[in-house]
Amino acid sequence: MSIAARFAGTEARLAVIAVVVFVAMALLSPDRFLSVQNLTSMAFQFPEFAILALATTVAMLTGGIDLSVVGIANLSAIIAATILIQIAGPAAVGPDAVLWLAASMAAALVVGAVAGLFNGILIAVLGLPAILATLGSGLIFTGIAVALTGGSAMMGFPAATAWLGNGLLFGVPVPLVLFAVLALGIGFLLTRTGFGLKIQMFGTNPLAARFAAVNVTSVLIRVYVLSGMLAAIAGMVIMSRANSAKADYGSSYILLAVLIAVLGGVNPYGGYGKIIGVVLAVLSMQFLSSGLNMLQVSNFARELIWGSLLIFVMIVNSKTGFGMRRGKPAPARPRPEQSSGSGR
C-alpha cells in the first residue's frame, strides 16, 4: 500500500480540505478573514452546532441517529431558563447568580439525561428504529417546550448567564473551551474506555455484539443518555448566546448536525467515526461560511456549499473504496437457520 493510499483516509482528506479552505479564505480576504475580530466571532459561532454534531455522532456510531437533539436542547434550555428567570431573577448578581447558573446547568443536564433515557428505552427496550423513535420524541420534547412557554421566547436572565455563551476564559471564548473539552472527552471515551469500544463494536455489528456477550441494551441506553446530555449543553450555549430560550431555536440544526457528522467521516450505518473528523468538518464549514460572509456571499450560499461539500466528500470516499463498502449493512437473510456455506 502506497503512502498516498494510506493518506487518503477520510480524516486526512478533511484536514486538507480544512487547511485549503482556511488558506483560500485568508488569501481572498486577508485583512478581514484573518482579523482577530473574525477569528473570535467564528470561535463563538460554531460550538453550539458542533456540540449538537457530537451528540448526533455518538448516536450514529451505534448505527442509530438522534433527530431529537434540537428538541432536547430547547427543552433543557427552557427548564434552565425557568430557574434563571423565576427563581434567580434578572437582578441576581455575584455568587448568587453563579450558583443559580450552576443549578440551571444541572437542571438542563438532568432534563437532557431523562430525555435521552426516554429515547434509549424506546430504541433499546421497545425496539423502535432510532430514526423514528427520535423523530417522534423530538416532536414531543419540542411540543412540551411549546406548551410550557406558549411558543414565545423566555427572557430576563441574570447577567452572569451571558458568560456561558459570550464570555472569555483566559482569553478564549467560553463556548469554544466547552466544545474543546467535550470533544476531547468524547474522543477519550470512544478510544480509551470499554464503553467507547463497545459503542463502535455494536455499531459495526449489533448481532455479533450480542453474540459476544456485550450488554447491548445498556450500551444503547447510555449512548442516548450521553447524546441527550450533550444536547442539553448545546441548549445552554444557544440560550446564553441568544439571551433567551425558545421552543423553536435552531431547528435547522438537526440536519446540519447529521450533515457535519457524515462529512466528518462518521458512517451513518454505524461502527466508524472519529471525533477529529467531526472537528475538522465543523472547522471546514465554519471557515467556509465565515469566509463567504467576508466575500459578501449571501448567507444562503453556505447551505449550498455545505451540501455540495458533503456530496463531494461522499463521492471521493466511495471512489477510494472508503465510504460505501465499509458501510453496507449485511443483507437481510431470508433463512436465519441456514449455514453460511458460500464456497468461494
Binding site: P268, A301, G307, M324
Partner: peptide, 23 residues
C-alpha cells in the same frame, strides 16, 4: 449511478437545492 446512500445524498441535495434557490 454513484451508488451513494440515499439519506446522505438527499440530505446534501436538500441543502444544495435550498441554498441555490435562496442565493
Amino acid at each position: 449511478f454513484f451508488g451513494l446512500p440515499t439519506l446522505i445524498v438527499t440530505l446534501g441535495t436538500l441543502s444544495i437545492f435550498r441554498g441555490f434557490l435562496l442565493t
